[in-house]
Amino acid sequence: MDDILVQGFLLGGVYALVALGFILVFKSSGVLNLAHGEMIAILAYFLYQLLAIWGLPAWLGILVAIPTGALLGVLIDRLAVRPLLGQPFLSVLMMTLMVSFLLRGVRYLVWGADSFTLPFTPRGQWDIGPVNVIPATAISFVAAMLIFVALLLLFRYTKVGLSMRVVAADHEVAQSLGIRVKRVFSISWAMGGALAAVCGVLMGMVYTVTPVLGQTVLGAGLPVLLLGGLTSMPGAVVGGLIIGLVQALGSYYRPGGVDVGEIMSWVVMLVILLIRPYGLFGEKRIERI
């Protein structure tokens, strides 16, 4: 039982990292990047290509994958999303979904339907005090928390972070203050892409890299995002931990003899949408009728 709870908790940290990728882009540009899941998947496959097929050492592979992710983010922003600036939200949402289709198609074309484990995935179990943890999940959790703290510091203390916060608050005000809004968009997309690469590494360790990784990630990330509120970074972490625990408990107790872990996150999301659409920590800016 303890193991289950701890495992769920640790997995929640990784979900939070996925949700942070959504938030980074959403906060500044107001685009819900539904291609994030596929970005993570294609970067995980790219990393596999670097390591297993081209034979790069693990650290170098990760170092190459992260800037590639940033580049991918910037490209998506410039080529697909920015031309739709000012269009109705459905166009933008559909565009990010189509980007995810495109990425998935390219991925199937290049790597087929193979699934594999990343070569540096640690094996076995670690005994930490009274509980056993799976090392990949534990490492991912620590990495996720480190990145979360780093992002918090970035938003709090650096000039880039400050400009991103201003852009998030109001595009026109930001522009009149001399902030280059478009460049901030690019930066936040680049950061989102880099985060997707990191997620690809971590998710590839936690789950095996399979063709459905993108959808798995999206299914985990969206409920977390909504639970925490669309714009709040601490919200994403709290939401991630809650969803991780709920999933673990759902798989453990099996009410009615079925494994409800997979569906619990969607149900939580529906409930949240019904009773508190702006999430636990979000701004109450939702349009009401």
Binding site: M98, V99, L102, V106, Y108, L109
Partner: peptide
């Protein structure tokens, strides 16, 4: 399968 996805997108 892949081409179908790409063309549709």
């Amino acid at each position: 399968f892949a081409l179908g996805l790409i063309l549709f997108a």
